[in-house]
């Protein structure tokens, strides 16, 4: 039993790091920065989203906003949503705006 546990520990130690590299396309950005609350599909239907009252990004309320307005929310934050303007580059924010638009069509 103990020998098997040793093997397990060694395996865990060396197996991991394929996920350690970050990706930067819009979908990955959305997953890493937004899906935590807004859910992968943008519904906001996650425990975290409910706790922080995250918006349904597919909704008319969100989709009726202009690109500039959505960009501003991402950049400066609103209510309990934090500002990402210091973390993300302007072109990344624009990619996210485009991704939010595509959520409505899915």
């Amino acid at each position: 039993m103990n020998a098997k546990l040793w093997y397990l520990v060694v395996a865990l130690f060396f197996i991991c790091p394929s996920w350690l590299a970050a990706e930067n396309d819009a979908a990955s950005l959305f997953k890493s920065k937004c899906a935590m609350c807004h859910a992968e599909g943008g519904s906001g239907n996650t425990p975290s989203g409910k706790a922080l009252k995250a918006k349904d990004l597919r909704s008319q309320e969100t989709q009726s906003k202009s690109d500039a307005e959505i960009s501003e929310v991402i950049t400066k934050g609103r209510n309990k949503m934090p500002a990402f303007g210091q973390k993300l580059k302007p072109d990344q924010i624009q990619e996210l705006v485009g991704y939010v638009r595509r959520l409505a069509k899915k």
Binding site: K33, M36, C37, P47, S48, A51
Partner: peptide, 13 residues
């Protein structure tokens, strides 16, 4: 729920 998610995801958000 948000705090649990933050911890679950390795304190990295």
């Amino acid at each position: 729920a948000f705090g649990r998610k933050f911890k679950l995801e390795g304190y990295t958000f």
